[in-house]
Design a protein around this nucleic acid. Sequence first.
DNA 1: AGATTGACTGCAT
DNA 2: CATGCAGCCAATC
Length: 108
Amino acid sequence: MSEQKPLYQRIYALVRQIPPGKVATYGQIARLVGGCTPRMVGYAMAAVPNGSEVPWQRVINSKGGVSPRANPIGEITQRMLLEEEGVVFNDEDRTDLKLFGWIAPEII
DNA sequence: AGATTGACTGCAT
DNA sequence: CATGCAGCCAATC
């Protein structure tokens, strides 16, 4: 049965499943959602309404770090939120995906 | 309706 | 490691 939900809603649902202290990459989310590209994930994250339960901060780029965006305040906020959850950034401002990378349950 | 942009990724040079 | 190019789709002008 095809999900008639909007693409962004599927992305949000997936991001919401990321447990605290873990992070996922745009490409990873895109592949899990299926039929969507990393850019769509990034766009969806930017479109997340303020106050929603979507842990958008747990979505980072393939480098394991926070992606640069127009508003630097959000970038700082994202890193701060992740550090509060236990995610550690190294000297390169990147996280160790081998330790904090979310291993998503494969969609059967 | 066409052009541009955007929180990306992977491969080639 | 730096740079360039292609792919992908939605929102905005």
